[in-house]
Design a protein around this nucleic acid. Structure first.
Lengths: 140, 140
DNA sequence: TTGCGTGCAAAGGTTTTGCATGGCA
DNA sequence: TGCCATGCAAAACCTTTGCACGCAA
């Protein structure tokens, strides 16, 4: 729905290359900024934000927001559609803030159930399960 | 984990009273601010934010964040413990923004599964399922 | 050459913090 | 009286926007 890129630029190219090296990881805008700064090819932060937005619109990245005043996280979903994470939970620990990927078929059942019984089409990509992770349970 | 209120103050009292009048609705911090300002008993915004945080920690309010740069929403969950919503999904429609309460035993199964198989203690009060509601699916 | 892409700087809006004052117990 | 709670103002924070310059086609 927003500006579709018409030119192929160096910045966009290396940005995508970077994300391809960190599949399944959660990256913030400032992570990206730092990365390119420390690699000798800095990219302006507004450029980064603008690319992140358009990549999200294209479905190449996924965006997660956990709190205001906390940077949003972006995850590379592959340029093909999001097959890999169709069966992937995202769990966020309320104690330590850790983000966990769980690959599990159970999610599909939940999805099917919500759809059949409650007429609600779950979006697994945006849904985050909050709770307490194993490590933090131990130290409680 | 944060400052627990020790004194009973007027501000806290009327804040809770206000939330009791809007069960199931989504209220932002500035909504609260405006409400009390226009009712002749303004409350400092920092006070409001501090109370909102502690009420969330007590489980009396639930907090939803949809985007950074967009105010967080708060929902009254009942002052008694959270019995009523122990078996309650919260589903948020990405299209129309509607919030849906679903009462369903299935959640308990999900909870048990996450705990047993993945060592993750789900917090149903903070977890929101994102997706598309029935009405919006129809009009798609 | 045309106009999109870039990057700096500044604005924008929400939330947090510092600190002095006021109020509960 | 002893602390906690309050509220103002300012800071902090991430993100967006304005605008001039540069670069792809």
């Amino acid at each position: 729905m927003n500006s579709r890129p018409k030119y192929k630029t160096k910045q966009k190219e290396i940005l995508l290359e970077y994300f391809e090296t960190v599949p399944g990881q959660h990256i913030t805008a400032s992570d990206v900024c730092e990365y390119f700064k420390s690699h000798g090819s800095p990219i302006g932060q507004s450029t980064i934000y603008r690319h992140l937005e358009s990549l999200v619109n294209e479905g190449i990245l996924n965006k997660y927001v956990f709190d205001p005043n906390t940077p949003a996280c972006f995850e590379y979903m592959g340029s093909e559609s999001h097959k890999e994470c169709d069966s992937c939970f995202h769990c966020k620990c309320e104690k330590c803030g850790k983000l966990i990927h769980l690959h599990c078929d159970e999610l599909e059942e939940i999805q099917a159930h919500l759809y059949k019984e409650h007429r609600f089409k779950l979006d697994p990509l945006r849904t985050v399960f909050y709770g307490v992770c194993e490590d933090c349970m131990k130290s409680e």
